[in-house]
Nucleic acid binder design. Structure first.
Lengths: 117, 117
DNA sequence: GAAGAATAATACGGCTCCGAAATGAAGGAG
DNA sequence: CTCCTTCATTTCGGAGCCGTATTATTCTTC
């Protein structure tokens, strides 16, 4: 499981996973959308529009639009915060979890291939 | 330098690098554009429009447009193939090399952080 | 040289995304 | 209750990318 990473191998890893994603991508997410999705699934909740905008150094409409797109793909869901109804709480979905599981599998598979190469 | 990678750590690595890129990105490349750029720099030349289109399973106009965009950013350059003037040979640039060096540095830095965490 | 094949680029209509600004809804201070 | 702030969303004009189909150039074959 241990890998010795040197810079060119790190770049090769990125390359192979990106090509995999582009080649047989079911959903076509931009860099921003993927960054938002990963933040929602990996960082501690709750996630609000404002919080995500600040975390990623983008404007709030960018977050709203990304949630619209990924929401229609059923990768995330939104609900109002009952304690402060101005806030929107972004939540995970089963489909989003499965998507990131597949991404994780792709990355791990490419790491394995780098080890044996 | 050796890292033990488990799936959640692979995903964390992807997350952190993507957030870095979105946060302080000088150039804003799409997933396809980045995949094309990495292919040009990491796979054996020569690279033609048709070859890249087949490699990435996209149509040729996608490649032409990506080369237009990245060409205006001076990340790649094009010249005609003198042996077969129908072909366009895609070439690397100094600026493109520097960009990928920075990407490589980002990835390596995040790998280091995962080791100590 | 003429006809056909192959390559890259362009035209087209449609869709998505952009940032800035305006709008709508909810909370807080007095 | 009223004013002001704080959220998220929507609107606006503009820019970029999409796939399909077409064009322009070059090569190949006869």
């Amino acid at each position: 499981m241990a890998v010795n990473f040197r810079p060119v191998q790190a770049l090769r890893l990125w390359h192979e996973v990106m090509v995999d994603l582009v080649r047989d991508e079911e959903v076509d997410l931009s860099a921003r959308q993927l960054a938002i999705l990963l933040t929602i699934y990996l960082e501690v909740p709750p996630h609000t529009v404002r919080g995500l905008a600040k975390r990623l150094n983008v404007t709030k409409p960018v977050i709203t639009r990304a949630l619209d797109t990924m929401g229609s793909l059923d990768l995330v869901s939104r609900r109002r915060d009952d304690l402060d109804r101005r806030n929107v709480i972004v939540q995970r979905t089963v489909k989003g979890t499965l998507f990131l599981d597949r991404l994780s599998d792709r990355i791990m598979a490419r790491i394995e291939m780098l080890k044996t190469a």
